[in-house]
């Protein structure tokens, strides 16, 4: 009897924590999203789909969805493309390559708040590194974080800077798994470098690309820290990404119902994206490597 119980006892702590802090909250969010509540009132009346309707009717929701989508669409291909090119170069086992990998990887374990603060200085108008550089080159003096056309780009740059080392490390692992014979065969056939890259490397790292694509899109839709620290969603909503809007509605305006409705929408969106991607890309993945 005890013997049969053993595995349950071992998994119990993990399962309980996951249930309480991950799975039950999904149901709680669903429940709260059809109620009206602001922490203060004793009861939370059922209001049907009103919170959802209000969101869909509000300009700020569509703005956030747009801004987040633009962020993802611009930053993910930039990150993965650059990471693959750099990984293809750093895959060589030399001392310099090792050092450079370390340097590129460092930001991905560094505090995001610190990075956001440091880059707030880099892109600050009067004393920042970027404008000092531009002044030295005799170019203009943009107000990076105060300009609605530039602020989102700054966040894309900062996010790419932080995450690219992780992508590179994963790509290097993927590249190392490609059998050398394939490159040798391509060399015998007189394949030029770019050709070999396109015909051998690219298809064979497809599983890695797929993995990175999934996690980086999910990540892009959840960017919060750099927004909260660097722009607070401004100027004029230009960087008001979805999780920032969720934080504002839930923890600044204390509109629990509407915040929960937004959380549910974002959740459904991300799950749908994951399924869609596995449908589209899943078929093109080459697993033979």
């Amino acid at each position: 009897m005890l013997r049969k119980l053993t595995p349950y006892l071992f998994v119990a702590p993990l399962v309980i924590f996951i249930a309480v802090f991950t799975y039950i909250p999904i149901l709680t969010s669903l429940n709260l999203s059809v109620r009206q509540w602001n922490f203060l009132t004793p009861d939370m009346p059922f209001v049907g789909l009103r919170n959802y309707e209000e969101l869909f009717a509000s300009a700020e929701f569509w703005n956030s969805l747009w801004v987040t989508t633009v962020f993802a669409v611009l930053s993910v291909p930039l990150r993965l493309g650059a990471a693959l090119a750099i990984a293809n170069w750093l895959v060589r086992e030399t001392l310099v390559s090792r050092l450079l990998r370390g340097a590129l990887f460092l930001p991905s374990v560094t505090s995001t708040v610190s990075i956001a603060v440091v880059f707030s200085w880099v892109f600050s108008t009067d004393y920042g590194m970027m404008n000092a550089l531009l002044a030295w080159l005799g170019l203009g003096r943009p107000q990076w974080l105060q300009d609605p056309h530039l602020a989102l780009w700054v966040l894309i740059v900062v996010n790419t800077w932080k995450q690219i080392g992780y992508d590179i490390v994963i790509y290097i692992a993927g590249l190392q798994a490609i059998p050398q014979e394939l490159y040798d065969a391509a060399a015998v056939d007189g394949g030029r470098r770019l050709h070999v890259f396109r015909r051998v490397t690219m298809p064979l790292v497809m599983p890695t690309t797929y993995f990175l694509l999934v996690i980086s899109v999910i990540e892009a839709f959840q960017v919060f820290t750099i927004v909260n620290v660097m722009t607070k969603g401004g100027p004029a909503g230009a960087t008001d990404m979805l999780v920032n809007l969720l934080y504002e509605i839930g923890f600044v305006l204390f509109d629990i119902g509407r915040g929960s409705a937004l959380a549910v929408i974002l959740f459904v969106l991300l799950v749908a994206l994951a399924i869609l991607k596995s449908r589209i890309i899943g078929r093109k993945v080459h697993y033979e490597a």
Binding site: F21, P25, I26, L32, I218, A263, F267
Partner: peptide
């Protein structure tokens, strides 16, 4: 357990706060 890797953490923000 593995599926939690795909579950965006923002969904539990408000519920965990209330819990």
């Amino acid at each position: 357990t593995v599926a939690t890797l795909m579950i965006p953490s923002h969904i539990s923000l408000i519920p965990n706060y209330l819990t």
